[in-house]
Amino acid sequence: MAKAGPAAERVVRAGAELADEIGFEQVTPSALARQLGVRTASLYSHVKNAHDLKTKIALLALEELADVAAAAIAGRAGKDALSAFADAYRDYARRHPGRFAAAQFRLDADAAATSTGVRHSRMMRAILRGYNLTEVQQTHAVRLLGSVFSGYVGLEAAGGFSHSVPSSQESWTEILGALDALLRNWPAPS
């Protein structure tokens, strides 16, 4: 049975660091054991299996990302909050590409119930309240923003914008401006 506690937290953090180095998909208990200089069997006192390790890394990444985003948007509203939130995600993805990939990992129902995913949604909805959207419109907007942020970050990480003019940063700024304009002028329900 997997134990909780400081040693387990160190194992998960080491797994997250390994994900940033080699990619989240490449993280396995055996790869982590090699990184830590221990036998694979000794990791199983902290994680049940490869899926459990990835789930724990995903939960860590979601928590870190929520903390970063919350600090970024504190005291901000409107376009300023939207841009701060988006920049926090993009900056986190650049600094921690493996962890950002882990944050996209599909969690089972039990893990999802304990995750900070709800916190991300609440922060986004708090930003969207400044745009006077209905509850249903907020849901659509949360999905739109999540898609744009994740999609742009993924394409950028894959080098999709590395040799193009205008710069990736210039496009990012324009996209955030366009999202702000869309949110301020969200179409009425049909």
Rank of each mutant, 00 (worst) to 15 (best):
Q26L: 14
A14G: 03
S30L: 08
V27A: 14
D20L: 14
A31F: 03
A8T: 10
L32V: 05
G15F: 02
A7F: 11
V27C: 09
Y44W: 06
A31D: 02
A8W: 01
T40K: 06
V27F: 09
L36Y: 12
Y44H: 05
G37E: 01
R39T: 13
A19W: 04
P29S: 05
V38D: 01
Q26A: 15
L43H: 03
A7P: 03
T28I: 05
L18H: 11
Q35T: 04
V27S: 07
S45N: 10
G23E: 13
T40W: 03
E21K: 14
A7N: 13
A8S: 15
A16M: 11
V11Q: 07
V27K: 05
G37T: 01
D20T: 10
G37Y: 01
S42W: 09
R10I: 02
E17L: 07
L18Q: 07
G23Y: 15
S45M: 10
L43G: 02
R13P: 03
V38N: 04
P6M: 08
R34D: 15
L36V: 00
A31M: 02
L36D: 06
A14S: 08
R39V: 02
E9G: 03
H46C: 03
P6A: 15
S42H: 06
A16E: 00
E17W: 05
H46W: 04
A8M: 06
I22N: 12
A31W: 06
V12Q: 07
T40C: 02
G23S: 14
R34E: 13
V38C: 05
A7Q: 14
A16I: 14
A16Q: 09
L43A: 02
G15S: 13
T28D: 08
A33F: 00
P6T: 12
I22V: 15
T28Q: 09
S45K: 15
S45L: 14
S42A: 14
S45Q: 13
R34A: 14
R13A: 14
A7W: 09
H46P: 03
E25S: 12
V27R: 06
V11R: 09
Y44F: 12
